[in-house]
Computed example of a mutant assay.
Amino acid sequence: MTEHISDLDDQFGGRMARPLAAAFLVNTIAPYLKASASDEVRTDMLSAASDHLYLTGYMAMDERSDGLAQRYYVKALELAGAAHDHLTYCTTLRGMSVHAVDLGHGPQAVRLADSAAAASPKAGPRMRAFLAGQQAHAAAQTGDRSGALLWIKEAESAMEKAESRAKAFGSYDPSSLAYHVGQVRYELGDIAGSIESLTEADRLREPLYRRTRVRYNGMLAERKLRVGRLEEACQDWHTVLDDYPHVQSGRCDDRYNVMMASLRPHLRNPYARDLYERGRTMAPAAA
């Protein structure tokens, strides 16, 4: 059920999928957690519940319900610890680091990312790339250039060793790594390099991840505009608007609002004006 809701979240956003996850948590998972069972079954139930709480926290973050997301994450850590589920424990700490980076809290993001890595000393190569990529992004946001480059190099090396693409939610693939390279480059001042990496991430991304396309192509357009590539930015933003009406996500709304604000000074340009007029018809989605 958690994996099914995760697929819905990827396609339609947290605002659409989280109510389903919350209802399942209250009506199904909570009674199971109170039921009698053998130690083995109870441990498995705690582990499955912690997975579900982590996902629900992620969707709350996507809605921009930041305090609620933190409460879900803390409860996910509690249950994962009780189940001795190191994978979900590390994944949740990393998710909390992603949240901190998203809110601009670099030092806290570094502490959480480092804690996630320390809690998983025997991680396989894909998990190591998953953790190191976030360590790199967090370090870059604090201006730690040497640390960021060290961690991104470790993520790239670990990804090369990974044998196959994982299917479970929270998996890390070459598109995810390219995104992290792009974020590190951007935080360290290399806007042109970040554009190159985000373009590569989009090329490698699976079509399932509609919300991710909206967010990351929005970032790509914003960065192209910063270096004066207005018409290319407009093309990327048109791609964003192809998906935007189908996604219910506070973070996607953020990208929409930035797009509209960024276009206003350029309305004498016909490409910008056409895009702006198209975007105005989608304003209710942001509301």
Rank of each mutant, 00 (worst) to 15 (best):
A192D: 15
V184P: 01
E187Y: 12
S36A: 14
S197G: 01
L87T: 11
R255C: 03
S157K: 15
L53R: 12
P207R: 06
D253F: 00
G250R: 06
L112T: 04
H4E: 12
M127D: 14
E160G: 14
H99K: 05
P265I: 05
A155V: 10
V98H: 07
Y32E: 15
A192I: 05
R94H: 11
A272Y: 02
A35W: 02
Q235V: 13
V41N: 02
L79A: 07
V214D: 05
R278L: 10
A82K: 15
R42W: 04
Q141N: 07
L25V: 01
A129R: 05
S171L: 05
A48M: 10
G67S: 12
F12N: 08
G147R: 08
H266K: 12
N269F: 02
V184S: 04
Q108H: 02
Y172C: 09
Q248S: 11
A117I: 06
S6H: 12
L25D: 14
L188D: 05
T43S: 15
S6Y: 15
Y179M: 13
V101E: 09
D51I: 00
Y186C: 05
Y209M: 09
A118G: 03
A168M: 10
R255H: 03
E277V: 12
L198K: 03
N27Y: 08
H180G: 00
